[in-house]
């Protein structure tokens, strides 16, 4: 657990709070990363998860998708995307990407675990989540900008200095709201997953906790 993070009641284990590079924390108050590790077996989703996904599809309508960008949490991510130079209408925020897929496909299609667990948690809360293979991560996760000469595993070339990334103690594991480094993504051999939530200004802590809890519960249902 990160320094200063208190154990949260009702959690076993408690989510871990990552750190943010101090100059980034000064630029972006409210930016944070939290994650939880869960034993899970990637593969076909169990019935309860598939049922929940169907229920979620039935509760999600076009009007919600249209007005989504006006809701506080999706709006907070859109604003943050703008502030870091991304266009949320080209690189969609996680919740907007799922909303678009729902409208396009007519349902939230089951894609197995952990994708379904993330879909449920992201759509219900709006919080940006992603999954890593926990056994590949070294130490604590953080959000920082890339140093000269650093690269993302599996991606040719070096990262431009200052690129915002999620990193572990060894180096960048994913671009912030971008691609995941090779080897860090979840595959069929992964047995322990890290579900990470990126928090930005305007996203309350309780929503982050709820998203992590929801994703972990769905993964446990399949484990």
């Amino acid at each position: 657990m990160g320094a200063g993070a208190a154990p949260r009641i009702g959690w076993e284990p408690s989510p871990q709070q990552g750190w943010v590079a101090p100059h980034l924390a000064a630029e972006f108050p409210g930016l944070g990363v939290a994650w939880i590790e869960v034993d899970a077996h990637p593969g076909k989703s169990p019935d309860p998860v598939r049922r929940r996904l169907r229920d979620l599809s039935d509760r999600f309508f076009g009007a919600q998708a249209i007005h989504m960008r006006e809701r506080p949490i999706p709006w907070a991510y859109r604003v943050f995307y703008r502030q870091i130079g991304l266009d949320p209408d080209r690189n969609r925020t996680p919740v907007e990407r799922l909303a678009l897929e729902r409208l396009h496909d007519g349902t939230f299609r089951s894609q197995g675990l952990p994708a379904d667990a993330l879909t449920i948690a992201i759509v219900e809360t709006g919080v940006a989540l992603r999954a890593f293979d926990a056994e590949r991560l070294q130490g604590s996760l953080c959000i920082r900008d890339s140093a000269p000469g650093e690269s993302l595993p599996g991606r040719p070339g070096e990262l431009i200095q200052g690129t915002l990334a999620i990193a572990d103690e060894c180096g960048p594991v994913a671009l912030l709201f971008g691609s995941t480094g090779e080897g860090y993504a979840v595959d069929h051999d992964s047995r322990r997953l890290a579900i990470a939530a990126v928090q930005v200004k305007g996203v309350p802590q309780i929503a982050v906790d709820e998203a992590l809890w929801m994703a972990a519960a769905s993964l446990r249902a399949g484990g």
Binding site: E70, G85, D89, T163, G178
Partner: peptide, 24 residues
């Protein structure tokens, strides 16, 4: 954009300020 939905198409996309996420 919500107000215009279904009535007219509003150009709401911007040129990305950066290729990768960074402090602008």
């Amino acid at each position: 954009v919500s107000e215009a939905f279904g009535r007219i198409a509003i150009e709401h996309r911007l040129q990305p300020a950066a290729g990768e996420p960074r402090v602008l």
